[in-house]
Design a protein around this nucleic acid. Structure first.
Lengths: 236, 236
DNA sequence: GAAATAGTGTCTGTTAGACATTATGGG
DNA sequence: CCCATAATGTCTAACAGACACTATTTC
């Protein structure tokens, strides 16, 4: 008979007296690179798993919330903030890191193409395309990259979550600059879903949603008829 | 220039040397009670927040995964296992517990009506209906129950997640016994969504999905025409 | 004017809501 | 025979895919 909650033994619980797991945040940095959904990864140069590729991450400080930790790591790892950040899932298998018990809260960060490029140019991370249903991360030389720890599973979940939310959420716009063409928006959807979409139906669906605002401006630097630029209006 | 991952300083990291947050799992036990979506809560009898109502939960042991911890807590708190369990979200605001830094991974557990009743009869938990958009937990005497810590937000997220997944996932069946009528299935959807549904359209949608298997059996103890009993078929 | 892509009109098949109707058990 | 609910048929509106067509810019 235990009507009371868990918390009666919290009162006299001394955290330093017990083993406690370490808590980290890992970032799944996703963006479009050459029309393909890609992730930014870092190369491990220390064992274990030296030479494998990993999600950037780090420990959660005792005085920062999970969201704040994710934002801090984003700044540290790619050198800027302002990307869309949302919590993805928490991974806590006992042996996911061979050195110690680490529970990680994975965050999804969505980057615009210019942000992807800036991070790569700064030498902090490398781009890997997410290919196929088995979800191999492909490096610049087209070879599959070995992924460290359970990061393959984390990437797969991130991709699935993005696919599931892309057409009823505003996530697609996080990949795009403030002004964008309908073609660019469709490219985002197609890259995320991995399948071509019908152009008129896509246009209708997006416009009927009532969120896109025509700017009257047109794209330049096109060697053909330039498309109109839209912005995302407020949610009502 | 930091090409390497976060993990180089993991190598010589001693977890006992730093403050580390405590990690708990909290359970959002949901089920239908008198045709309403309801949660099972425990009453806190120790400060802080004595007299408030809370989600049952407990610490994650150093040698158990998050999923295993959730299953163990389910067994301890309601006295059985076998309920549908899935991870919901992780909450890590710095001040969410006034005593110490606690990061909690919330799990969603879906119970059948007989499981709800068994848990209540065993005196371990109390039922609270989730009412309205502001999501007040309502006790037996129809008064709103004060919720401890950030558990109101956790309940709200659980309800929203359930609403979002109810019609493309198998979650609804977790609330039902192995054999059920279409009416009972519709009751589940209506209680979760909080809105009435069209009967013929609902039947068609469910049957066209190809997952429901007619048993040829009919419900008994009905004072009118008895409905056919169905089971959930395999996913292909 | 040729090339290329933007943008539109229209047909069709699928699906959901609304509503009426028939079917079948208990009393 | 009455009642209550199960189960079904049908009409209609909304919507997505397919495809053809027109429009507009650069070169």
């Amino acid at each position: 008979m235990n009507i009371s909650g868990d918390s009666e033994f919290l009162s006299d619980y001394d955290p330093t007296a017990y083993d406690c797991p370490s808590v980290t945040v890992d970032l799944v940095l996703l963006g479009l690179h050459r029309q393909r959904l890609s992730a930014l990864l870092v190369r491990r140069d220390q064992p274990p798993q030296a030479g494998h590729w990993a999600l950037p991450g780090g420990f959660v400080a005792i005085d920062e919330s999970l969201d704040v930790a994710a934002a801090r790591l984003l700044r540290d790892k790619v050198g800027f903030d302002g990307a869309h950040l949302e919590q993805l899932y928490s991974f806590g298998a006992v042996d996911r890191d061979p050195r110690m018990r680490v529970i990680t809260i994975a965050y999804l960060a969505l980057l615009r193409e210019d942000q992807m490029n800036a991070a790569v140019r700064a030498g902090r991370v490398a781009v890997a395309a997410l290919e196929g249903e088995r979800l191999a991360a492909i490096g610049e030389d087209q070879a599959a990259l070995p992924l460290a720890f359970d990061h393959q599973a984390i990437l797969a979940l991130a991709r699935d979550r993005l696919r599931g939310k892309i057409d009823y959420s505003d996530l697609a716009f996080a990949f795009l600059p403030p002004r964008f063409t309908l073609r660019a928006l469709q490219d985002v959807h197609e890259a995320v879903l991995g399948t071509p979409l019908n152009k008129p139906a896509f246009r209708r669906r997006m416009l009927d949603r009532g969120r896109l605002v025509a700017t009257g401006m047109r794209e330049d630097e096109a060697s053909h008829r330039p498309a109109e630029l839209f912005t995302l209006g407020s949610a009502r």
